[in-house]
Structure formats: C-alpha cells, structure tokens
Nucleic acid binder design. Sequence first.
DNA 1: ACAACTGTACGACGAGGATCGAACACTGAT
DNA 2: ATCAGTGTTCGATCCTCGTCGTACAGTTGT
Lengths: 111, 111
Amino acid sequence: MASAETARARTLTHVDPVEVSLQVALDALADPVRRSILRDLAAHDDWTRACGTFDLPVTKATRSHHFSILRAAGLIEQRDEGARRLNRLRRPEFDAAFPGLLAATIDRQAD
Amino acid sequence: MASAETARARTLTHVDPVEVSLQVALDALADPVRRSILRDLAAHDDWTRACGTFDLPVTKATRSHHFSILRAAGLIEQRDEGARRLNRLRRPEFDAAFPGLLAATIDRQAD
DNA sequence: ACAACTGTACGACGAGGATCGAACACTGAT
DNA sequence: ATCAGTGTTCGATCCTCGTCGTACAGTTGT
C-alpha cells in the first residue's frame, strides 16, 4: 500500500549527500558537453529526459561515458524505465556539497 | 608629477573587466596547483606574494606555466618589482564576470 | 522468433596538458 | 665585473581524457 507515497518520500526526503572531492566535481563541470547536459536538465528538473533525447555532437558511446562521469560526480541520478534511462539533476544535494558552484557554472546562456 | 597617484588610481579604480570564456575559467580552476596558488593569494589580497614564495610541489618551470594560465584566465594580475614578479588576485573583476565561481572553488579548507 | 531501439563495455586512437631539465634574460648585491 | 637569485622559454616526455567503432545486453514492439 501507498507505494507512490513511499517512492515520493524516498525521492524527496531521503537524498543521500554528495560525497565527492572538489577535484572530481570541477573535472565533471569542465567539459562543455557535460555542461550542456546539465543545462538541459536544469530546465525541467523532473525525470523527463532519457539519455538519448539530448542534442549532443557525439556518438552514443561518448554520450554514455559523459553520463557516467556526471553520475560519479554526484551531479545526476539515473533511473531505469523500460529500455530508457531517465535522468534527474541532483541540484539540492550538489548545492549542499558545493554551494554556488552549479549556479555559477550552468546558470548562463552559453559558454 | 603625481606618478604614484596615477599608478594608484589605475590600480584601484580602473579595473579592466575579465573577458574570458567560462571554459577558460573552469580549465584554470580545475588544477589543484593553481587552486593552491589562488587560496594563498586570497588570504592577503595585496601585492605581497612573489611567484617563488608559494609552496608548490612543482619546479619553477611548471610554476611559471601555472601563473601564465591564471593570468590568461583573468584570475591574477602581475607586476614587476625588481627581479621579482608580484601577484594579486583579481577577485572583484573575476567575481563580476563569474559571480560565485571563485567563492565556490577556493573558499574551502582543502580539496 | 525476429527486428528495432536504448544504453553500456571494451579496445584503440589522437589531442591536449602537466611536468621536467636546460638554456636564457634580467635584477640586485658583492 | 662577477655572481646569485628570479622568472620565462623551449623541447621532450608522459599520461590522462575525449572520442569513436564495434560488440553486447536488455526492452519493446511486430
């Protein structure tokens, strides 16, 4: 019973903190392809985007590699839904670990 | 006449804005040696530190390379005083170009 | 069962960057 | 003038990382 409730509670309250070094975080943010992913993700911050729906100038192998880096840096969270893998920006968790870093990095029109 | 005055005025009021891409800024900040330099510089933000006075685990050739990167990224400013080259953190200028980025990067004990 | 689609794993390749030693230019003192 | 100290420049080396093609696993349809 109340499976939707527990799922929602787990998603919204039990957010495990980001525990990565600043080095790992900066290395993840220093790539333009990865910043593009994060910006797209920051627009609609729910589980709407699958890995393949991003407009990126790389093949799917490279794309998968970038998502792996972002996951290891604590910047995104992934969930399987059938054949697709949906993504979510871990904004509150990352902000708690590195205040202001995400905003300074992806809250701009381009560059 | 008043050469000290104009020099001071140039230093304190006429701060040319940082005009580098976010990519250049992040690449400069992504290196631990360079962040160490910036942290030391952030402590005493006047022209007190020469390049050789920093405790870094690299040779002077590499050290000079890192200072060049920081200068190109608009993060530091250098001034010759005799044989030494004194450094200053361009904090207000860089903050104007990338609000919050420096704080999020070097305002922490380590990492 | 078969085909199409999504994403990962693996190996290889190339570019870029961090590092060094050595040589050089410049300043300051002896 | 000579020497010591500071910092830059130049190659060379090494190694990480972004990229790709291919092969593979899992899912969804027909």
